[in-house]
Nucleic acid binder design. Structure first.
Length: 425
RNA sequence: GGAGGGUUGGCCGAGUGGACGAAGGCGGCUGUCUUGAAAACAGCUGCGCCGGAAACGGCGCCGGGGGUUCGAAUCCCUCACCCUCCGCCA
């Protein structure tokens, strides 16, 4: 959520931002009008309430003194004021609800350094690391390798749960588990993160906090009897860990890392990427989440990206860093970089991480603040997150980059202690 | 799933239809005293919103929402969560 004062004081700046984001339909003008109306109503309601409070206190005093008749007179007048208040409050409540809705549907503003562009075609490749391996045979896609090795079972996944589900078995299942454990260990031991194991189902207010609701309900699974939603990413429960809290400045930055499964409906990409394990309704991810002060947020993003890149480097898989242009930023991000690993079998760059700085956008929605100085007023923190990394796609990259002519796959060196074998065959 | 008891300020804890500012304690901050500290004493001690250049004033907040009333932490309804007991169960 943006600061309403920003809309009040610099509406042009906000409208300009909506233009470069391709979000001209965001209800900026509605919000400005509703905010104005809200304050008009508030001034009147509060004046009436002040009058009623004074009157009620007077009634109390008169009753104690036994002046019943005079009290009755004031009572009658107070009742009338009460009715006026009720009428005004009814409108006020509606205006506040409408304003809230409008504010929840206005996206975050991009940082000035974000390149302007209309869609993903104008994203900027910031750097490419590592050389794609030269094969002396035709590299196979992971679904062929995985099925032949007996470590990926698509048919049975579909039998159990339909399309976009698969089963991992044997060393395939173990490879994924090894990656989870190893990545967690790297972030905990080498990058200083604290491990968190959160709930995989959350209440809707958490999703509002991170910005998945109300706009993106379409992509989420929910229980239809109770207010439980399956998390689409660990970002949701972990960011909400500190909702409605006021943190101490010395606590910041807070660095969390969490492994969770993620659940997504993928309605938007119906029919896309249905082959293999690139895009399932359920996938695993190790996610990093940071809480920082506004002053350090931007540099912490660089650290976060570097922490994610470390995983790519240690796995010795070629990758590139892509900066999202304004038109491809997510609803909540002020700036965002993706990490993409090269997959020679499917011949594409796979998004394995998405690292974003949300400034105070999520913090305002989730009410996460900190106190800069012991006595000072609380301020909103900055939140950040990034995958470190998304599992099935790293499995794809490993299978396809480390495959051998006979269809076997060499285990990356860093994973061998976790796998217990050097080759999957 | 059933029955009962709870949810009060950073923490503990009192309260009950009216006295403006929710007692008291702890913790924290400031001051006095002291060479310094402790102790003692005194004062301060939350969050949000609105108006205002500011000083300051007002409104709201005793788990969430709604209701009764001139007036609710206090009564009623409802939801959530916690505790105890029973049942069921890995």
């Amino acid at each position: 959520m943006l600061d309403i004062r920003l809309l009040r004081e610099e509406p042009e700046r906000v409208r300009e931002a909506m233009k470069v984001l391709g979000a001209e339909d965001a209800p900026v003008d509605e919000a400005i009008a509703l905010d104005k109306r809200r304050r008009e109503l508030l001034v009147r309601v509060e004046a009436l309430k002040a009058e009623r409070n004074t009157g009620s206190r007077r009634i109390g005093a008169l009753m104690r003194e036994g002046e019943r008749e005079e009290a009755e007179g004031i009572k009658a007048r107070m009742k009338q004021i009460g009715e006026e208040i009720a009428a005004l409050e009814k409108e006020l409540k509606q205006v506040e609800q409408d304003l809230e809705w409008a504010m929840l549907n206005i996206p975050n503003l991009p940082l000035p350094e974000v390149p302007v562009g209309k869609d993903e075609s104008e994203n900027v490749v910031v750097k490419v690391v590592g050389e794609p391996r030269a094969f002396d045979f035709q590299p196979k896609p992971h679904w062929e390798l995985g099925e032949a090795l007996g470590i990926l079972d698509f048919e049975r996944g579909v039998k159990l749960s339909g399309s976009r589900f698969y089963v991992m078995r044997g060393l395939g299942a173990k490879l994924q588990r090894a990656l989870i454990t190893w990545m967690l260990d790297v972030h905990i031991e080498q990058h200083g993160y604290t491990e968190v194991y959160p709930p995989f189902m959350v209440r809707s207010h958490c999703l509002v906090g991170t910005g998945n609701l109300p706009k993106f309900a379409d992509n989420l699974y929910k229980d239809h009897e109770e207010d439980f939603w399956w998390i689409p990413t660990a970002e949701v429960p972990v960011t909400n860990l500190h909702r409605d809290e006021i943190l101490d400045a010395e606590q910041l930055p807070i660095n969390y890392v969490a492994y969770t499964p993620c659940f997504r409906r993928e309605k938007m990409s119906a029919g896309k990427d249905t082959r293999g394990i690139k895009r399932g309704h359920q996938f695993d991810k190790v996610e990093m989440v940071k809480f920082t002060t506004p002053e350090t947020g931007r540099e912490e993003l660089d650290k976060l990206i570097d922490n994610a890149e470390d995983i790519c480097r240690m796995l010795e898989i070629p990758y590139r860093v892509v900066q999202m242009c304004t038109g491809d930023l997510s609803f909540v991000a002020a700036i965002k970089f993706d990490l993409e690993m090269w997959a020679p079998g499917v011949e594409e760059w796979l998004e394995v991480s998405s690292c974003s700085l949300f400034t105070d956008f999520q913090a305002r929605r989730a009410n996460i603040r900190y106190r800069p100085e012991p006595k000072a007023r609380p301020r909103y923190v900055y939140t950040l997150n990034g995958s470190g990394l998304a599992l099935p796609r790293v499995v794809i990259a490993i299978l396809e980059n480390y495959q051998q002519a006979d269809g076997s796959v060499i285990v990356p060196e860093v994973l061998r202690p976790y796998m217990g074998v050097e080759v999957i065959r």
